[in-house]
Design a binder for these strands. Sequence first.
DNA 1: TGACTTCCTG
DNA 2: CAGGAAGTCA
Length: 694
Amino acid sequence: MIDSRILNNWLCNVCSRRQFFLSSMNLSLPDQTMHNSSEGCLEDDKPDVMLPCFRRNMYDEPLASYSSGSIISQLLRKTIHNKRALDESHFYLSGSAAADSSQEDQCSISSKDSTVEAASPGAHVPTGAGTEVEHPMADHLQAKRARVENIIRVMAGSPNSRQPGDSERCDTDARDTREAREAYRENKRKQRLPQHQEHSVGGPANRRPGSSSNSDNCNKDEECHKLKEQLHSMQRLLRQLQEKFLQVYNQEDPENNDRDDTEGVEHESTESRYVSTEDDFERKNSRVTAECKDRMKVVGYLVQQRESRSLQDTLKQELSRAVNDCVDRVFKKEASSTGQDLSPQQRMCSSPELQIGVGADRKRQQAGSPQEQPQAEEAAVKPCSLEYYESSEAHSPPDQTEALSLVVRKPPVTPLSSVNPTVKRPYPMHQNPFQFSYSTPLHDSQILEHLLKYGPHSSFGGHPCMAPSMDRNSPDSVDLPWDAIAMRSKVTSSHLAHHARASALGAVTVDNLCLPHVKIECGELQSMADRNPYMSLNIQEGLTPSHLKKAKLMFFYTRYPSSNVLKNFFPDVKFNRCITSQLIKWFSNFREFYYIQMEKFARQAIVDGISDIKDMTVSRDSELFRALNMHYNKANDFHVPDRFMEVSEITLHEFYSAISAAKDSDPSWKKAIYKVICKLDSDVPEEFKTSSYL
DNA sequence: TGACTTCCTG
DNA sequence: CAGGAAGTCA
């Protein structure tokens, strides 16, 4: 009789707890059961961890107990009762925080016992069997509660039996608070809790030790704290019951235990559930702590797995997209060969560099660069290049010169940009866009491609980052196109017409005109480069920021370097008029700044009333030097030669003397100073000649 | 006339 | 830092 009642009770509890969990997880059980039960499984929602066991038992056991009424109405009634069950379980927790932990201990030791005991809060829940069982079940519940409390007292090792009476409330609360504090300390170590949680517990709890008095504030704090504690306890209970539920159903299906557990953890995207639950266990039981740690490891592993899986998926997607693009382009090429008209972009795509382009494209994607940007750039520039080259082609006779035919053959096989960009080039990612940008009108655009990749002053010969094999093998493939262009530019171009076109077409055409209009074209190219980061990097193949830095450091030795000196000290630069002018201009700018500073400080010295020129010195501490050093040696990683100090001091004195003598009224009063200073140049150390100096 | 420089401007 | 005007010089 008793056994059958217990069994019935258990069945009821199984059902009610299922309802309890589902409602606590914001699931609509009726909907789930009505709509999804026939489908065999649920998707997406996290709670589907539970669902296999729910479903299995939904039909095997609990529904059998529904004697009348629709399932929905039964379940709705249960929901109401489950709220009572929740309250009662909450009462347990608030009565003794240790209670649930002890229960947990027991549960983990014997899941069958725990099933019965954990079911006790739900014992009130009537089943379809009717209300006549309610009283006997209540009695049973009382008896069980007493048993549990007894067990708890024993396990907690508390010498004082605690009644849930008001007289002991304060003690209990204080202990709860201490335990909670410890628990939160543990939590802090284990996981990051939201700030307000820590404060809400830590604040009142910290004030508590001195709160043996019965002041109102203290009571309010205590009440507040208790409420929070109860909230947390309820949440903990929920999670624990979830676990127990899993355990119960996994026991029924032992062979699936491991798998279900794993799945359960895997589907717990919010690890905090387990973590916080485990923190409760941890307070009381070291064995459970071990479990907890294992689970955390599992969770961490699974999270990692998930991340790597997403990365894997992304890679797969990108790869398949690249392959698709490739296939599309091949077919477009086929279509074009059958006479279909293609847009410039399409023709571009069907260039011989197609495969390389795709490969490079993929690399760029992996590096995180957006794919769209370079393509947009191509689209913007390409029509111009086509237009220009088609029109310029008209000037050329159909039978090309030998130089040009050489040029035609070379670019597709140049290994420099296409095959080894990521290894050999200093700016690999930014070079890629050009690999499939200017390749279609076979002759000229390939020349152009070279120009855009390497610049008119293509300096592959000695770039510090270049592999040696590249350095000396490349000239025939590189210089020829440029020379050919230069030659053709002289032969076929009318300067005025080309210049006008250059203005209209921008940088793409500039290189062809560089020889007759050095400054203008370099300027246009540079300004275009400013707008186009990829092109900018290619221009810097000529003079890079490193070259600029080197030039600035050279200024410490020579203010007026000759062209020969510049050529000697920039061996990795393929000099032409444009580059030479740019370098000379750099030094001109350096001088400008230098003289401006000198004049400024000289005038300042006069204003400051310095009468003796010997009082004006330039040391490494002086403000003048700091200004100069800041300009030419910004990183301050270069030891400025003493000679520069001397020259600076002399210059300052010259300015001071001239201004003091009122020579500055003469428009050309600085010329004399310049004459003096230009004689003070010293030799630049040989180390500067090595291209890898910087 | 071309190379180089300074000066001014942006 | 670059562009450009203007000046100087061989």
